[in-house]
């Protein structure tokens, strides 16, 4: 009966397509993203190399396709990890109150007052540029986002009758958090997760752009953009292509999140 939100559909399609590209890059290109050909550096687009070649003669289109993997894997897994750690922390703070809450929320506040990119940069600079370290660096930054968002509702639901009656019947805290409080947060967290993925993708791209992402020769969108800016005047396509890729991925997650918020909001869903 209700018309599907067009933004939700567009966002969903973009993300579905990017997941497909990340999982099966060979479906989209037969070129090797790492194969260098110094003789053909900065070659303009051709039938064989659709978007031309970079400064080492590598195929830009193939690097774009393979770069999807890095963005999606790091972007999505850091959101999932951040949510898996942050939400319980926030729920615990809201549920147990007292000292636990004060300490957790203080740490969260201190962290929130700090730009996520700077923290990720420091972490990567100290511990090295591996997929795991980069993911971890981003996760640290977004745990507090989820913790803070889970804290408020946990605080509110704790006082509700259905939770109190559970306690009377002897339910334990983890059970209550999982069975009663989490289901009430779930839809809001899905929305936040989607919109946060747009942020983590941009942070990963920012790290790569600054040369502190995955080291070469791995293809990353941020790294490609960094390479491209050197040739901005002679070969603008080289920087436009990876930049647009980052934008489209972030847009997909933002549209998806915004659309889901509309669809899941009980006030507008009118179920």
């Amino acid at each position: 009966m209700r018309r599907l939100n067009p933004l939700l559909v567009i966002g969903g399609l973009i993300i579905a397509f990017l997941v497909l590209v990340a999982l099966f890059p060979t479906l989209f290109t037969s070129q090797d993203p790492a194969r260098q050909d110094v003789a053909a550096q900065l070659e303009p687009p051709s039938a064989e190399h659709w978007l031309g070649r970079d400064q080492f003669g590598r195929d830009i289109y193939a690097r774009l396709i393979y770069g999807t993997q890095v963005s999606m894997v790091i972007g999505v897994s850091s959101v999932l990890l951040g949510m898996a750690v942050g939400v319980p922390i926030g729920m615990i703070a809201g549920y147990f109150r007292g000292k636990t809450e004060r300490v957790i929320m203080w740490i969260v506040d201190v962290k929130m007052a700090f730009p996520g990119l700077v923290l990720a940069l420091l972490f990567v600079a100290l511990f090295g540029q591996s997929t795991w370290n980069i993911t971890l660096a981003i996760v640290i930054g977004i745990i507090p986002v989820f913790a803070r968002l889970a804290h408020g509702p946990a605080l509110a639901f704790r006082e509700r009758e259905f939770v109190k009656s559970s306690i009377v019947f002897g339910a334990r805290a983890p059970w209550i958090l999982y069975k009663h409080i989490w289901p009430n947060l779930r839809s809001e967290m899905v929305v936040i997760a989607s919109m946060t993925a747009a942020v983590t993708i941009r942070i990963e791209a920012g790290l790569s752009f600054l040369g502190l992402g995955l080291p070469p020769p791995t293809a990353t969108w941020g790294g490609m953009l960094r390479d491209g800016t050197t040739y901005l005047q002679t070969d603008p396509l080289f920087s436009l292509v990876p930049g647009l890729a980052i934008f489209v991925a972030a847009l997909g997650f933002n549209l998806l999140g915004d659309g889901l918020r509309d669809a899941l909001d009980p006030r507008t869903a009118n179920s």
Partner: peptide, 26 residues
């Protein structure tokens, strides 16, 4: 306005910077 702000929110600032250089500064 809401669609525009979703679009704006998706732009990495460094890519906006590159676009500004390419289409305005140069």
């Amino acid at each position: 306005g809401r669609v525009l702000s979703l679009v704006g929110l998706s732009f990495p600032s460094f890519f906006v910077a590159v676009l500004l250089i390419l289409f305005i500064a140069l």
